[in-house]
Design a binder for these strands. Structure first.
Length: 421
RNA sequence: GGAGACGUCGCAUAGUCCGGUCGAGUGCACCACCCUGCUAAGGUGGAGAGCCCUAUUAGGGCUCCGUGGGUUCAAAUCCCACCGUCUCCGCCA
């Protein structure tokens, strides 16, 4: 939810953002009109209500003889209050809906355009060169006995898989590595619920344009989350936080579920795009003034992970049209995947400014003593997909895979993953 | 799954039977000041959230007693539904 003040005081800023995102510019004027209507209806209701309250006091104080006359008089007032109240709450709901239809206002220097209009900020690391024909991650995963797609499909259908043996250990090791780094950086680990209530899903902005990406459990009216960001953001919903001594930082681990609707035929091989995977996610609640600096910190933590795992990557600044509803800016770190000859997203970090917090009612006490919404940021620290880049990058001619040094402690000191016999 | 109890302003509680004098008392914690020869005790005062209006650091109004409905001129208080917590019983990975 954007700040309604912005609609009143500087609608042109919001309109610019809508234009950059390729969203409806008229939505701004509509929200402004709905807001004006809402305020008018509220004022009317409150005026009548005050009158009624004053009357109530007189009725209470009146003696038996004069009560009937007073009651007769106030009865019709009560009718008007009721009507005004209904008008006012309808206007309120409408204003809220109009405002909710507007995604977060993008930051000033976010690149304009759509999915392909990202700006590459930097490329880091050396892409691997092979003097043999490199195998793709699934071939390697099968050779190592690490990934079993066939049985995943048998049990659960397409885009499901088993991680087995060294594959399972690799995933857990990756998560452990990320978790330890998060701990060092002051994040509190959190294992989160993966089923959440509608209002939390709504509040984090995942039921907007991409609602069909989300699994829903009809019988229980719960949603399966596609990222622990949802539970991490919901964690402090309706709370007033003390961020005066620094941000609140959490590292959430969870299994993530995505329907992948509309991606039929894309990335059908292996574990690049699957319905279920694990993810370690960083999440910060912070004074809005410090949000951009925090965004840089999250990105730095992500880059350090990739670098230390020996992965070549690039950082892109996502264009406005490709931002999620809640994000004001988003950086993706994409690893080089040799057999695809392409960079593929391994991490994503978004600055949601106060957008999520306003919807979820998460506030802090500003210096003025008033409450104000905090800023929230999120960023990936490890996911199942990382295995793809790891296996492909560090493979050898015989199908074995070198283990990056930072990962070895989590695999019992193992230096090389050997093909299963 | 069954039965019962409960949900009040940071925490703990009063108020609910018998609707108006309750947006709400008390204790603790908190803030300011006073007192006190020292981080204690005591005294006085302040202090919730959201929204609207006038205004701009101040004032006025409205809403909020788990959530949502209903009854009523009027609901923390009566009725209904839902959610949550606790206790007991049953069942179970």
């Amino acid at each position: 939810m954007i700040d309604v003040q912005l609609i009143r005081a500087a609608p042109e800023v919001v309109e610019r953002s809508q234009r950059l995102r390729g969203e409806r510019v008229e939505a701004v004027a509509e929200a402004a009109a709905a807001d004006a209507e809402r305020r008018e209806a509220i004022a009317e209701f409150e005026r009548l209500r005050a009158e009624q309250n004053a009357f109530g006091k007189r009725v209470a104080a009146a003696d038996k003889a004069e009560k009937p006359a007073l009651l007769a008089e106030v009865k019709q007032l009560s009718e008007r209050v009721k009507a005004a109240s209904e008008r006012s709450s309808a206007a309120e709901a409408q204003a809220e809906a109009a405002l909710a239809a507007i995604p977060n206002v993008v930051l000033d220097d976010v690149p304009p355009g759509g999915e392909d209009d990202y700006v590459v900020l930097r490329e880091v690391g050396r892409r691997p060169a092979f003097d043999f024909e490199p195998r793709d991650h699934l071939a390697l995963g099968e050779l190592l006995g690490a990934i079993d797609m066939a049985r995943g499909a048998k049990v659960s259908g397409a885009r499901f898989y088993y991680l087995r043996g060294i594959g399972a250990r690799l995933e857990l090791g990756l998560m452990q590595l990320g978790l330890n780094r998060a701990l060092e950086a002051g994040f509190t680990p959190l294992i989160t619920p993966t089923l959440v209530k509608p209002e939390i899903m709504q509040g984090t902005g995942f039921l907007g344009a991409h609602a069909d990406e989300v699994y829903r459990l009809e019988a229980d009216d719960l949603y399966l989350t596609g990222t622990s960001e949802v539970a991490l953001a919901g964690y402090h919903a309706d709370e007033i936080l003390d961020v005066s001594t620094g941000p609140l930082r959490y590292a959430g681990w969870s299994t993530c579920y995505r329907r992948e609707a509309g991606s039929h035929g894309k990335d059908t091989r292996g574990i690049i795009r699957v319905h279920q995977f694990d993810k370690l996610e960083m999440f910060s609640y912070i004074d809005p003034a410090d949000a951009e600096a925090e965004h840089a910190r999250l990105l730095a933590l992500q880059e350090a992970m990739l670098t230390d795992l020996g992965l070549a990557y690039r950082v892109i600044d996502t264009a406005a049209g490709d931002l999620g509803t809640s994000a004001a800016r988003k950086y993706d770190v994409e690893a080089w995947v040799p057999t695809q000859g392409a960079y593929r997203e391994l991490t994503s970090t978004s600055n949601c400014t106060t957008f999520q917090a306003r919807r979820l009612n998460i506030r802090y006490r500003a210096e003025s003593g008033r409450t104000a919404p905090v800023a929230t940021l999120n960023g990936t620290l490890a996911t199942t997909r990382w295995i793809v880049a790891l296996l492909e990058t560090h493979q050898r001619a015989d199908g074995s895979v070198a283990v990056p040094e930072v990962l070895r402690p989590y695999l019992g000191g193992l230096e090389v993953l050997e093909p299963a016999s």
